[in-house]
Nucleic acid binder design. Sequence first.
RNA 1: GCGCCCGUAGCUCAGUUGGACAGAGCACAGGCCUCCGGAGCCUGGGGUCGAAGGUUCGAAUCCUUCCGGGCGUACCA
Length: 545
Amino acid sequence: MSFESIDRLITETLTELCLSQGITRPKIVLEIPRQREFGDLSSNVAMTAAAKCGMSPYALADKLAAAFTTSADGVEKVEVAGPGFLNFHLAPDYFHRLLAEVVHSPGEYGDGDEGGGARWLFEFVSANPTGPLNVVSARAASIGDSLVKVFRKRGYQAESEFYVNDGGGQVALLGASAKARLNEIEGRTEVAVIPEGGYHGDYVIDMANAWRTAHPGEELPDDELTGRWTADLVREGQEETLRRFRVTFDRWFRESEVYADDRPDAVVRKLKDLGLAYEKDGALFFTASRFGDEKDRVLVTSDGRFTYVVPDLAYHLDKRTRGFDRAVDLLGPDHHGHSIQIQAGLKALGLSEEFLQVMLVQQVNLKRGGQEVKMSKRAGVGITLDELVEEVGVDAARFFFLMRKSSSPLDFDIDLARRHSEDNPVYYIQYANARIRSILRHPDAFEPGDDVDLTSLVEPEEMDLLRAVARFPWTLSAVVRGIEPHPITVYLTDLARTFHLFYQRRRVIGDDRRLTAARLTLCRGVAGVLAEGLRLIGVEAPDRM
RNA sequence: GCGCCCGUAGCUCAGUUGGACAGAGCACAGGCCUCCGGAGCCUGGGGUCGAAGGUUCGAAUCCUUCCGGGCGUACCA
């Protein structure tokens, strides 16, 4: 009997007992209790529904429990405990069958259909093409990529997108900076001044040199053209960096594409038509304060240019037009004000408030030797994603970025991340997998076969492992509910720990062939879940370390 | 001022859409390799869940206020 069928039987029984009466089924029906003695699953329905059913929690719980003792297979016993909890103890057989499924197709274990094919677009990183990616982008890349993978696994049509801001003033500033660098290289020092707020990083020198190589002897174009050319190069570098970080995007969407059909104009026109825009001080304002913003916002500046929010609104409308049911934006903490503007704008333009979900990914504090490592992309100093990966490796970096909830600032301990030792959680998990693979490689190991008899798996360490395996789909479901991949790292650490304990106390390969076969199968199942879990967070699961 | 995020063990953090005596790692103290990988395991001490009210059968979790910390608050993107 599965979670779902228990859920169903509770609902049916409840309906029978309390009859219609317009009673709505309580929300939380089943959970995995913290304490082992409370069973494998527990339910609080008796307490939440007691008043509505006109019974005491105990009386209701007893009646519900009775429904199970008669008809449920897979459920070993149902107890009423505490203030009225229903505790379900599942039979070992339930877990044995589950394990057989896992081993049969480990890549499909944890698949779900709660998405129902809904189309979700995840936009993340979306860094300006004006410099190398920094570590906040790296964190967003880890989070976004994992979300897409998990959402797909749970039945969503999830896609990833990188929005390239190649149209703004920052790009022209990059162009001016590159020109200054080129002038500097070629000895025209009197015009080799990087403008106020420009880009000082060494990569700009590389860009200048690249320009010269590509255009020998040519005059320098204006800032904007130089900027666009340079930005293209920077963007390619970002894509390459992300590829090395094992993050690829379904689409790179350029701001310039938004301009193609004069869509920013259309946005402004529509807001005007709706009477939600007005002129003041020579600029055009949007009545954002009527849609939850703290004040009205400028759409068109007094010198006739669109502010950032206009093409961005057009871009988000485009997401809807392309047929996405929901859009999720992962933004840096400095974009908070902007996200409110976008939400207000989309609401004004008639989109439902649920359409866009903004997740603010909090900052990353790099620490080395106990000291904070400061960074500033615009000044060209600090740690880039490339440098971080070179120092700690992709596996550690991706895992560390998911060790905290994305809404919490993350302290990234570089020393710990590069340490290949027991206190590094990445290796702790990978080690569990490598250990299993090593057992499976053992000369006395064998292929248990599909009809393996698992009934001998009854020891506490074995049951703990089976329960941990059973929690995997549960964990993924939590990721989807919270739009937050962090539970995966917590889960994998726990699964690895449970395995290490099992390994320490129970020998897999022994004289009893039936028991050996069962335990080999258990090992394969655990390794399968570890590998699939690691895949979802972009971390490798090596057979040897 | 306003907005968002965060205050849980000495340190870093879990705590599943409120649930049954608050968990883990690190650090500290002690133990475990004839035997499938010791990158591992076991035992132990440690917490008025920032504070005070409120809602509830039940609160670390929800509401209010306060205290403390971080970030943001542009006719930049």
